[in-house]
Structure formats: structure tokens, C-alpha cells
């Protein structure tokens, strides 16, 4: 099939809009498709996700400012609930809050809006394999949690925090497990609902888990039945595991199972319910 009888559009459309000549030499668009190396794609995807998170003002409020204010406030204000040095009790709970904010609420909201704006569909329409898309988001969440941990720990040290050095390694592993478990929950909420509803649901759950899990007020000070529930919430379990690490105790296995259970449950559901748009 040829089109020789028809007008050449270039002849009648002038020089286009660029400052340079927009005539395209033959071969400019000669096909040469192919996928980049996986490591390169993963790095690019992770870097983009991290910079988008850090650049977003509401995300920064959620992931850094609120935990910082709570850390400083709860450590320095005399509320009569904690024996000094209060920061020893507050710091691990605030680290749990930071994980929850980034991996659950932040991830859910970002995913909800990315879906709304067709980003996920756009990215799946490229050479980017699905696993890189997911791994990129996971690595970005882990990187942001690492950054939060550094900032919050440094602040806590300045406030007189004395964690047990032997708890550092288990602490990091617990933070990773917590990020993955909350991340699965974030994908579950952000991957299935409309963006506005994601916003409402993710923030509500964040607040309920913050209070119910004993992150702001220690679980033992919560009203009777809620104290028992706290250990079975992912936030309560993460706070308990991190607290054990920072005081040099063995990490309670039950807390790890609670985190793992929530993560697997949310992940299994998310695989079924997550939609690209």
C-alpha cells in the first residue's frame, strides 16, 4: 500500500515548532527495541520513587515531621506516664510510627493517586517488568525508612537515648520486616480503591493503629481491653519488637508472627484486588 498520490504533509505543515529544523533524517526512528539490564531499570525506578516521596510536602509531613514532633514532645513533656529517661520508651515506638507512615499510609496514598493518574498503566506499557515496578517501590520505601531511622535516632540520641548496642542488628531486621508487612497493607488499600477513598481510609487506619497499637501512649496505659488488642495489631507488634531490641531483650517471637501474619494476609489479598487503574 502506498500513499504516493496523497499530499506530503511535511510540504504543507511548515517547519514545526522547534528552533532547529524538525526535518527528521531517514533512520532517526529506525526500530531498535529492547529491554535495559534489570539492575539499571531497578535503580532508575527506585531513584524516581525516592525523589518523588521526598519532594512531596504532605509525605514529608507524614514521614518525618509528625514522628519528629512526637519524639521530641513525648520525650521532653512531663505527662506522668513514663519514668525518665522517657526517650528510651518513646524512641522505639516512634520508629514504629515512622515505618507505618511510610510503608502503609504513604505507600497507599501514592499508589492510589498513581493509579488515578494512569502512572501504573503507563509504566506497565513499557519494557519495565512488573517485578521491577514492585521491587522499585519496596526498595524506595526501605530507603525512606532508613533515612527516617537515621534522622529519628540522631534526634533521640540528642535527647539522651541509650539503646542497647546488641539490639542494632535485630532492630534493623525488625524494621525491614515491619516495612514489608506495612507495605503489603499499603498496596492492599492503595491498589483497589478510588484515590479519595484511599486518602480517607489510609489516614484513618494510620490514626487507629497509632492509638490502638500504643505508639503515642504506651499500650499498658490504654483502657483495659485495648491493652490486650495492641499486641495483635501490626503497629503494636512492631513497637513491642523494636522496644525489645533497644533494651537488649530477645525479640518476642509472637510479635514477629503477628507482623508476618498481617503482611502475608494483606499481600495475598492485594495480589487479587490490585488494579492498574
Amino acid at each position: 500500500m502506498t500513499r504516493d498520490g496523497l499530499d506530503n504533509p511535511r510540504a504543507e505543515t511548515g517547519t514545526g515548532m522547534g528552533t532547529d529544523s524538525t526535518a527528521f533524517p531517514p533512520g532517526t526512528f529506525r526500530p531498535a527495541p529492547g529491554r535495559a539490564k534489570a539492575a539499571r531499570m531497578l535503580l532508575a525506578q527506585t531513584r524516581t520513587e525516592i525523589s518523588l516521596t521526598l519532594r512531596h510536602p504532605e509525605q514529608t509531613l507524614l514521614t518525618l515531621l509528625i514522628p519528629l514532633v512526637l519524639l521530641v514532645g513525648l520525650s521532653t513533656l512531663e505527662l506522668g506516664m513514663l519514668t525518665p529517661p522517657r526517650v528510651d520508651s518513646v524512641a522505639p515506638r516512634i520508629l514504629a510510627l515512622a515505618v507505618m507512615s511510610t510503608a502503609f499510609t504513604g505507600q497507599a496514598i501514592a499508589l492510589g493517586f498513581d493509579r488515578r493518574y494512569g502512572v501504573i498503566k503507563r509504566l506497565t506499557a513499557t519494557a519495565l517488568p512488573r517485578w521491577v515496578l514492585i521491587a522499585g517501590r519496596v526498595l524506595a520505601a526501605l530507603s525512606v525508612v532508613a533515612l527516617q531511622t537515621v534522622v529519628l535516632s540522631a534526634t533521640a540520641f540528642a535527647l539522651g537515648w541509650h539503646p542497647s548496642p546488641s539490639g542494632a542488628l535485630p532492630g534493623v531486621l525488625v524494621l525491614v520486616l515491619g516495612t514489608l508487612a506495612f507495605g503489603a497493607g499499603g498496596v492492599l488499600v492503595g491498589g483497589a480503591l478510588r484515590a479519595e477513598i484511599v486518602l480517607a481510609v489510609a489516614n484513618t487506619i494510620w490514626f487507629l493503629l497509632l492509638m490502638g497499637g500504643g505508639l503515642a501512649v504506651p499500650a499498658r496505659h490504654l483502657p483495659g481491653p485495648m491493652t490486650a488488642v495492641a499486641d495483635y495489631l501490626p503497629s503494636g507488634a512492631l513497637a513491642r519488637a523494636l522496644t525489645a531490641c533497644t533494651v537488649g531483650d530477645t525479640v518476642p517471637v509472637s510479635s514477629l508472627f503477628v507482623l508476618l501474619g498481617w503482611g502475608v494476609l494483606a499481600g495475598a489479598l492485594a495480589v487479587r484486588t490490585t488494579r492498574v487503574s
Binding site: 527495541p33 535495559a36 532508575a44 524516581t48 519532594r55 493518574y117 494512569g118 503507563r122 506499557a125 513499557t126
Partner: peptide, 24 residues
């Protein structure tokens, strides 16, 4: 796709470079 498809906060060059880095 119809109607865009980009992160709302992404910079124009950043989006294009991201997609370019997926290609051989």
C-alpha cells in the same frame, strides 16, 4: 495512552529519563 499517564509530581525530563532507562 489517552490523557497522559505520569506521576503528578514528576518532572518532565525525569519521567522521560525513567522510561529511557528501561530501554536497551
Amino acid at each position: 495512552p489517552q490523557g497522559g499517564g505520569a506521576y503528578p509530581g514528576v518532572r518532565a525530563g525525569e519521567m522521560l529519563r525513567l522510561l529511557a532507562s528501561c530501554c536497551a
